[in-house]
């Protein structure tokens, strides 16, 4: 098997596993939400009939033990649901990430340079980083509520990458043969991966927030019960965005150093540079909005999402539509 075939197979495998992980983690989330609703109901009703209620909860959560939804504690926060779905989600995400990694590395061997010089390579590497970031955060604390969003993103991004963006690997143009390519682009990809997870947390924050304040439509989404409070999500999203922002700042600066080396000017308002700047400024606005009266919470969350949209734009529309020096990186 050639490196190319290996990369191809591994990435399709990763796509399929991410899809399974997305479904399984969504099911898990729904069960957690059910168990929580149950636990709340339990706490609300008299503790005398606790036994019956617990068995009811077990019935609802199917093949799983309803965890510590014990009627006596009555604390809705203590719900732990371990279901088959969560096991499947965890293992498919992990194996998917491994395959994704194999695919990326094999592509690197195939092309003879770091695998992030075309849109296709950027996509497969960026997706991998996003999932790995999620797994790292997951190790420290339970953020399985982010799993459907992250694996869903992974499925779509990899799927589009394999079908639409795929390009045969070619040698690097002389202008791309630089230490700074490795630095600049790798940090950009890591920042992007982190922003992906941050955006997922922010979307959940907004949904949960609107649901809590009585949005009629979102009441139907009972699974949002399984997601932490808006304030908790905002705290998590902030930490992710903060790391992403520092890395993005570094990306822009390293890009300027590279441009200085390669083109003799550190900044030329090339479309790619304009958009990197726009992204940076929007996230800076987000960081300020967080600490501004009337902007903290929802409005700053919207700014973070606008920043994310700009990030995706930078990588799609700007690459494909606008002409600039960066476009010789190939599509």
């Amino acid at each position: 098997m050639t490196a190319q075939e290996l990369s191809w197979l591994a990435l399709w495998g990763a796509t399929a596993l991410y899809a399974i992980a997305m479904v399984a983690s969504s099911i898990h989330l729904a069960r957690v939400a059910d168990a929580k609703t149950q636990a709340k109901a339990l706490a609300a009703t008299a503790t005398s009939s606790a036994d019956a209620d617990v068995s009811g909860a077990q019935g609802l959560t199917g093949d799983s033990a309803a965890g510590s939804a014990s009627g006596t504690a009555g604390a809705s926060s203590a719900v732990r649901v371990r279901s088959k779905a969560s096991g499947i989600a965890a293992s498919t995400t992990l194996v998917g990430a491994v395959l994704n990694g194999v695919g990326v590395i094999a592509r690197g061997f195939e092309s003879g340079h770091v695998p992030w010089s075309t849109m296709y390579e950027y996509t497969i590497t960026g997706t991998w980083v996003a999932v790995v970031v999620f797994l790292i955060v997951q190790r420290k604390r339970d953020v399985s509520y982010l799993a459907p969003g992250v694996t869903g993103f992974g499925t779509i991004a990899l799927g589009l990458g394999m079908t639409v963006l795929y390009a045969q690997s070619t040698g690097l143009q002389p202008a791309l043969q630089s230490f700074w390519l490795v630095i600049h682009v790798s940090i950009a990809i890591i920042a992007t991966g982190i922003f992906v997870v941050g955006a997922v947390a922010t979307v959940l924050q907004l949904w949960r927030d609107y649901r809590d304040s009585g949005s009629a439509f979102l009441q139907k989404w009972t699974w949002l019960e399984a997601v932490p409070t808006p304030a908790k999500l905002e705290a998590l999203a902030f930490r992710l965005h903060a790391v992403g922002f520092v890395l993005w700042t570094f990306t822009v600066m390293a890009g300027a150093v590279w441009a200085e080396h390669a083109w003799g000017r550190y900044w030329g308002w090339d479309p790619k540079e304009v958009w990197s700047f726009v992204i940076w400024v929007i996230y800076a606005a987000y960081l300020h909005a967080r600490t501004t009266q009337g902007w903290a919470g929802r409005r700053s969350a919207y700014l973070a999402l606008i920043g994310f949209v700009a990030l995706i734009m930078n990588f799609t529309v700007v690459n494909l539509v606008f002409q600039g020096l960066h476009s010789y990186a190939g599509v």
């Binding site: 308002w269 479309p271 304009v274 726009v278 606005a285 300020h288 600490t291 501004t292 700009a310």
Partner: peptide, 21 residues
């Protein structure tokens, strides 16, 4: 004020976009 800083930052981002289009 911080609010004006936020607004100016948003304006700066918006104003840059035509430069790429």
């Amino acid at each position: 004020s911080m609010r004006v800083a936020v607004i100016l930052l948003i304006l700066l981002a918006l104003a840059s976009i035509p430069g790429s289009v």
